[in-house]
Amino acid sequence: MSTITTVTEFWGALWQAVGRVLLLDATVFPAVRATAGGLELALCILLLAGISQTLGQSVTLFANRVSRRRFLRALVLSALVFYVERRVLGRRRSGWIARLIFGYDGPLRGVLISVGLSYAPLLFGLFVFLPYLGNPLAHLLRIWVLLATIVAIVSNAGLPIMQALVCVVVGWIVWQAASSYAGRRIEQVLDAVERRLLGTTLSDTLDLSSEVARERERLRAR
């Protein structure tokens, strides 16, 4: 097992791994698994992907008129939520499904590394902020992550591609069901954290009506 000893080595290994994941190179997954510090490397990619993704979708923060200081807090909070969600709850589902349906019994550390790496395409998430191109790019990145996840499962569990695809699809359905069941409670917790950190709860929709009404009055009063 190779070992990463310096920060420079860590970043070098990280960008090399990212490049190979982006090319959907299946050999990168066992290589990182066989590296001491591979888990940290994969989780670092996941965290950076979370920050990039959050930056790309920061229009919600602006629409909610958060101040600059709270904007930074919200970025950190959203990136952490992304990280924790994927690390603790999210993609481990594919590992469980691989165990339940296909009898795979490998270590979950391997699953976590593979899945952390497979989020590497979201390092480009900040480009979702681009006007016009942002939306199609977001779809492209989702597909890229999906493909990388399939390659990761094939590599980690040694499953055929179709079975890996089933894992991902069933995992997605389970996640949607779990989200809708537990969603309200999770949302309440996140709302409370948002209120605490940002002083407001973020809304996904932009409401211009009160602003329009105020401006109408100003123009008429003139």
């Binding site: 229009v59 923060l61 602006f62 008129r65 600059r68 681009l130």
Partner: peptide, 28 residues
């Protein structure tokens, strides 16, 4: 071009968020 494109929404979004104080312009 990429940098200009990436930065382009900030003017409008910053204005809306009140970072540039633009919403309180005096109409009169």
């Amino acid at each position: 071009a990429l940098i200009i494109a990436w930065c382009s929404p900030f003017e409008a979004l910053g204005w809306w968020a009140g970072w540039s104080g633009g919403l309180d312009d005096d109409v009169g």
